[in-house]
Design a protein around this nucleic acid. Structure first.
Lengths: 220, 220, 220, 220
DNA sequence: CATGAATGAGACTTCATTCAT
DNA sequence: GATGAATGAAGTCTCATTCAT
């Protein structure tokens, strides 16, 4: 009469997070549902009470991952720090994330492979577009604040979406290269190089000269 | 009685190229050795005469892929085109490669996952470092020529390795995002935006002012 | 505080009938207890309050099915129609049942398989013997009436059990063939052919000649 | 260079026959592929080299079964025995088959369930229609010979297909009832009763009177 | 050298049954 | 009594790899 009360929402998230951990450790295809179950501390069959298939599980795991990222960077959204510092903090965080747990990108690769192989899944899930959305949003916000503060050139505004998208793509790309051969180069240095180069491009030159880069789209 | 004379080298490459094709179509883990054999027009067991394991095969396939890329871009190395045109041509080619056959990146993802999961493999193989080497070399060459031609600032020289590495990482990153959701943005436009922004940063400003971006590394 | 008063008998039958429906739709082994629970509008665990196992459930479902049949044909038992009409009506009903809901035979197949696999179950349950009992009883009754009315030869009486058994077996057999390939033949026509042939055999010939068929058992 | 030469046809049949044995023992759904493999003396995976799925396997097993039956009864086709003896021999054989190995009908039930659940399979496979074809053919042949020999009434000819179909259906039906509860009745006696009744109906009466049963179809 | 038949470990998934609430 | 969350055994099927020919 009093059925066991379970918060399905919460338990789903628990399982998804556990899955995230093991997917990040061994990759999606190489991780068995048994491993996920063990990591979640539940029985194998229980997973299927919450997720219809392994594919559904990685989608949820990815969503949980995105949410984690989002929660981590949200403070940068409404900060009273100056935009440059916020941008550098954001990058430092991304760098640290890669250095601390380089394999998380395996989750990204896993979902990417699924989406590439089954485009219908991409339609349903959104792909990297969805994953990168929160961080792109923060970047755009910072750029807008920078323009408002007179730090960045006004033309930055009209290109902020593209700038943010490229920035995120770069970080993912360099991160992927890094985990593939961590001894080849210094990740932090490389990201920092990109960042300072970008900031220089965005900034209003001290002498008032307009940095031309941000109007690149018109040069096609 | 006359033993069949076989050029192991050549046949290995044939198989590797066939493997490249199917890996690019379905992904590494989702491709069976049978499919590879069929694509290569040989028996399943024969593959094992040339490669010790499936992992060895994707390594060879990746190497063949890199060689393909290398051959495709070598003309840009010793071209008499001006550096800017060569740079734009190089980017245009990369863009075209992604647009024409987006799934090739599955090969890259496959080898990356292997390397990430088994770092020892990374040591032996080199990871993305090796894959991107030829293209980075070409970029560095173009940059050097640009500096020599007075188009790029001299400080570009000391950072050309980093510039090239970031550039390649960006293209891989944006390409990965693209194949994951081709409807989200215009790949060519996005890559072009990055390129022109970069060129602006590298170029000697008309007024002789030094573009500050290329010295980013000093700002750490 | 007042314990809910539940008529176990009645609820058992409700569940059994719900089970009958889904077993008839998908077959016994292919139907999950969840589906039964859903069809019955109760919780999965509740089934086990009334039935010890899935096997017990199909036994009960079969019994309920038999009872349904029984109730459907009982009117033919004490009818004032003449025996021939009653016989034809009975056959027409059987034919209609097969044509209307061919899959019900899945229940029969399911229970048969169980019984065959576990003969002990057969001992406990009775198998097709029990299922066909009511209809055989009606047939025997009709035959007796027919003899009494002078329509059927008196020798029919001593063989009525065998006649009824063969008749039921035939209908099951032809029905099974039918559901297996409904396009192969016309079920109604085929059953009708059997029926009229049988009636001819049973009937007292107009000229008073004895139909020899009903004495077949003596010819062994 | 000299690949192992395997007669796929023959090995397929071997496996199918082994499958037939175990399916007949435990039923289709209750038999695991491991059991089939063990019965066939091969590895589990080997089955899938010859059959695409478990469903394909039971189709092949059924076909092999039909072929066995066919081979067993073919001698009756061109026999110089008189038609009545041939008919009785055929029935005796069927009876013996059921008594010797009652569970074979499980194969029939298994395939029937599959076909009922997936009508498309029925289209592809033919259902009971195909299984019973050879035996119906023999029956029709015997009936024709009987008419030619003046034993059976000429009207038998025009109904021989229906007679054969009903006959087979009856045997299947009574066999199914029998295996479900072998203690309920005497199978041989019951089949014999049907047979002699049928023969009586078909036969030309000694006094030249036409047996009316064979014209049943006209009585609708 | 070349082949493909054979294999068995292991993957995903289903489901009858139990039991705490 | 009633429930449904939890489970693990078991099932079907895949596939990298081996090896006799």
């Amino acid at each position: 009469m009093t059925p066991k009360i379970i918060n399905r929402e919460e338990k789903s998230r628990e399982i998804a997070l556990a899955a995230l951990t093991v997917f990040a450790e061994h990759g999606f295809e190489s991780t068995s549902m048994s491993q996920v179950a063990e990591a979640a501390g539940i029985g194998k069959g229980t997973i299927y009470e919450y997720f219809h298939s392994k594919t559904d599980l990685i989608i949820a795991a990815t969503a949980a991952w995105v949410q984690n990222i989002e929660e981590g960077i949200t403070p940068l959204l409404d900060s009273d720090m100056d935009p440059l510092t916020r941008l550098r903090t954001l990058f430092a965080a991304s760098t640290k994330a890669f250095l601390d747990d380089p394999k998380v990108i395996l989750v990204f690769l896993g979902i990417s492979q699924l989406v590439i192989k089954d485009p219908a899944l991409g339609q349903r899930f959104g792909g990297a577009e969805v994953i990168s959305a929160p961080i792109r949003k923060v970047i755009c916000s910072i750029l807008a604040d920078g323009v408002a503060a007179g730090l960045f050139h006004v033309h930055v505004l009209e290109n902020s979406e593209s700038i943010a998208r490229n920035l995120v793509a770069f970080v993912d790309g360099i991160g992927l290269h890094y985990v593939t051969n961590p001894h080849a180069f210094d990740l932090a240095e490389q990201i920092n190089f990109y960042l300072e180069q970008l900031i220089a491009t965005l900034s209003v030159a001290p002498n008032g000269d307009r940095s031309p880069g941000v109007r690149g789209k018109r040069n096609r």
